[in-house]
């Protein structure tokens, strides 16, 4: 099983679609690694100087965002683009169904937390470190600058947890189904 948690990157917008996570022009790639330089390449955020090449994003292993993350195209390339950039946790108010399933199918985490908790995480100052406790369904976000912490809980569908523990849907299905 993967290990989860680490430096967080925040994207303050709802309805980020998979075209924004990885534009269609890169769907001609047949290796996941080739997607690495193009994560969130065309994302534009109002009132923000978002830069897909920022050191903070390069360093991050956790993404924190708002509602309906990953809507639109079914492309698993969106999940792979995160994965090859070492991001294996996305915390959001809510996810689009296919994206959420693709995350668990790859053995990584799409965690839904309460919007008010996510709001508090957004308000933490400076660099934020996130810890994920899968067994107890808890997420802790802590500011490195002030030491301030936000604790939140998440409920994972028990089947999704099985997928994560098995290392993904292919490994699980290969064991379970003839």
């Amino acid at each position: 099983m993967n290990t989860f948690g680490g430096p967080a990157f925040f994207i303050d917008r709802s309805d980020i679609n998979t075209d924004e996570i990885i534009p269609a022009k890169y769907l001609t790639e047949i290796s996941k690694k080739a997607l690495k330089p193009h994560l969130l390449e065309d994302l534009r955020l109002e009132n923000s100087d978002f830069d897909p090449r920022s050191p903070a994003l390069q360093k991050a292993t956790v993404l924190v965002t708002r509602s309906n993350f990953g809507c639109g195209s079914s492309r698993e390339h969106a999940v792979w683009a995160l994965e090859v950039n070492d991001i294996n946790v996305v915390i959001a108010d809510s996810f689009a169904r296919i994206f959420r399933q693709n995350m668990f199918n790859c053995g990584i985490l799409a965690l839904e937390a309460a919007p008010e908790d996510i709001e508090k995480m957004f308000n933490l100052k400076g660099e934020v470190e996130i810890q994920v406790d899968l067994d107890n369904g808890r997420v802790t976000a802590q500011s490195r600058e002030t030491g301030e912490r936000v604790e939140s809980s998440f409920t994972m569908n028990p089947f999704d947890l099985k997928l994560v523990r098995a290392g993904g849907w292919l490994a699980y299905a290969d064991q379970q189904y003839s």
């Binding site: 994206f99 569908n157 849907w169 290969d174």
Partner: peptide
């Protein structure tokens, strides 16, 4: 239903898919 590549892969191999 639309699915990702891993669901497709399992569909091709095993003829099954998981849904809520």
């Amino acid at each position: 239903a639309g699915v990702g590549t891993t669901d497709l892969e399992v569909g091709i191999l095993k003829g099954v898919c998981a849904f809520r």
